[in-house]
């Protein structure tokens, strides 16, 4: 989808926040670690996959997306995914939230899986290569390809800024899960390539100070340049 998340090349977002020390905690508030744990529980119990998670974040309205701290957006997306999967009841989540706001609830200390029991499921989700379902690649290293100018309304990992541009295949990574299907609960795989673009072909020579941009593109995103 052409959502607000597709930020490459946009202007006007201003300065970066101050950097943090290398050993700083990644969590600014105590609850942010709880959100990370809920995300790990979602993947580890196979309630949702990475592409469903990304697509959930992408569907937040642009004002919320840009105006809300990172882990608060994650909390919203993860909560929605658990509710949409029918694992957590929405009314119950609301009631429990109100109870915690009123200081009338306590966290249970018993329960389900340990982190080490969740990790294998999480790792499976991050491992997208599917060599057992290898597809014959249509392109090889050195081929010139052009990115299709398509604007799907669902999830895609093909950012707008490469659509219509031509580049060179510089690596073939084998066959991987195809995110555009996977985000919608469908099982599909595609050959995956790394494609190198001249920055001038993406932005215009006068509007970039980069030399090259490299990105992974699934086979369905591209065609031979001369077609």
């Amino acid at each position: 989808m052409d959502g607000i998340h597709d930020l490459g090349g946009m202007d006007g977002f201003g300065d970066l926040p101050p950097d943090e020390p290398d050993d700083a905690s990644p969590f600014h508030e105590g609850w942010e670690g709880r959100v990370q744990a809920a995300y790990i529980a979602g993947l580890g119990n196979d309630v949702f996959n990475l592409d469903q998670f990304r697509h959930r974040l992408e569907r937040h309205d642009p004002t919320y997306y840009l105006g809300t701290p990172y882990y608060e957006r994650w909390l919203t997306a993860v909560s929605q995914l658990f509710v949409e999967a029918g694992v957590v009841d929405e009314a119950e989540l609301k009631e429990r939230t109100a109870a915690f706001e009123a200081g009338e609830a306590e966290l249970p200390d018993d329960g389900g899986p340990s982190l080490s029991e969740l990790v294998p499921g999480v790792a499976d989700h991050y491992w997208s290569a599917r060599p057992d379902r290898a597809k014959e690649p249509a392109f090889e290293v050195g081929d010139r390809v052009r990115v299709l100018k398509e604007h799907p309304s669902g999830h895609t990992r093909c950012p707008r800024y490469v659509r219509g541009a031509a580049g060179e295949v510089v690596a073939h990574h084998g066959t991987h899960v195809y995110p555009d299907a996977h985000a919608h609960g469908k099982d599909a795989v595609e050959p995956l390539y790394n494609v190198k673009f001249d920055a001038a072909d993406l932005w215009g020579a006068d509007h970039t100070d980069a030399d090259a941009v490299r990105i992974e593109l699934w086979e369905r995103y591209i065609e031979a340049e001369d077609e």
Binding site: R34, A37, E72, L93, L107, G111, P113
Partner: peptide, 26 residues
């Protein structure tokens, strides 16, 4: 729900996930 206090929301989600056997406090 997103308009509520994130601390309370995170605790509520965690407690439901623990009760449903999908997560532990540990």
């Amino acid at each position: 729900l997103r308009d509520h206090d994130p601390e309370a929301r995170a605790r509520a989600l965690q407690s439901l996930l623990i009760e449903k056997g999908l997560l532990s406090a540990e």
